[in-house]
């Protein structure tokens, strides 16, 4: 006789499967390497075939979000994939991506002024199975549009990121809503200058998961949770 807990978790698994979340295949590493942060998602795996929404209130936050996405892209594009980055002209600086382990020449930039065009291009790109990820900078995104993105992504298995202004935050069909804010870096053993890039990552909404607040650092081309650093420091101290 199964206990109540087991039945509920089994039913949860089934619900997730109907919604398109697949449990990790045995022998295949579905984990992306975000550490603690990945635990909040369904099946404890960063959902790849979904659209993620990043809210940027200021230009500094937009830059931080750009860096954070680049970090995730480098993990997604390890097998030489290609990414399409849709944004307004000459905002993103290609050599800046190299620091996050992304080959900037593997990224195709599409510079558009109008949101209308950007939405069309984003949807077309999300349908393209030859891509690994699509990033789009938008001013606004409504529920209908996010649903269209989600539907496009389901067949092609492309990861979508939408960088949007923090204007009117209505509900959307995205898998998660993130907010990335820069945090002051810590000095490295008393050396002058800047330390590793550090962010506060807020998961404002996660479909079928929990929300949370995390602090991450970008060290040597990988994400390191700040908790770990603190523990290490305590052990050393």
């Amino acid at each position: 006789m199964e206990s109540k807990q087991q039945v509920i978790s089994k039913l949860r698994q089934e619900l997730l499967q109907w919604e398109g979340y697949k449990p990790p295949v045995a022998g295949q590493r579905g984990v992306l390497g975000l550490g603690e942060l990945e635990q909040v998602f369904p099946n404890k795996i960063f959902p790849k075939n979904c659209v993620h929404e990043l809210v940027c209130a200021t230009t500094e936050q937009a830059a931080a979000s750009g860096g954070f996405i680049s970090g995730i892209l480098s993990l997604l594009m390890q097998q030489g994939g290609v990414c399409v980055w849709i944004g307004r002209a000459h905002r993103l600086f290609a050599p800046g991506l190299a620091a996050f382990g992304v080959q900037p020449h593997q990224v195709i930039f599409i510079s558009l002024q109008k949101d209308k065009d950007a939405l069309w291009v984003m949807e077309e790109a999300l349908k393209c199975p030859g891509l690994t990820a699509v990033v789009c900078e938008l001013r606004q995104m409504d529920f209908k549009q996010s649903q269209r993105f989600q539907r496009a992504v389901e067949n092609s298995r492309v990861t979508g990121f939408v960088l949007r202004n923090a204007g009117k935050l209505s509900s959307t069909a995205s898998a998660a809503r993130w907010q990335v804010q820069p945090l002051p870096s810590t000095d490295l053993g008393g050396l002058p200058g800047l330390g590793f890039l550090r962010w506060q990552v807020d998961l404002l909404k996660v479909r079928n998961g929990q929300t949370g607040r995390f602090q991450l650092e970008w060290q040597e081309k990988r994400f390191v949770p700040v908790e770990e650093i603190r523990i290490e420091e305590r052990q050393v101290g």
């Binding site: 230009t59 937009a62 830059a63 750009g66 860096g67 680049s70 000459h90 905002r91 993103l92 600086f93 050599p95 800046g96 991506l97 190299a98 620091a99 080959q103 900037p104």
Partner: peptide, 13 residues
Amino acid sequence: TWPELPRPIRLIN
């Protein structure tokens, strides 16, 4: 090769 020196992710032009 791409530059090794730190470069910003967003450039103001």
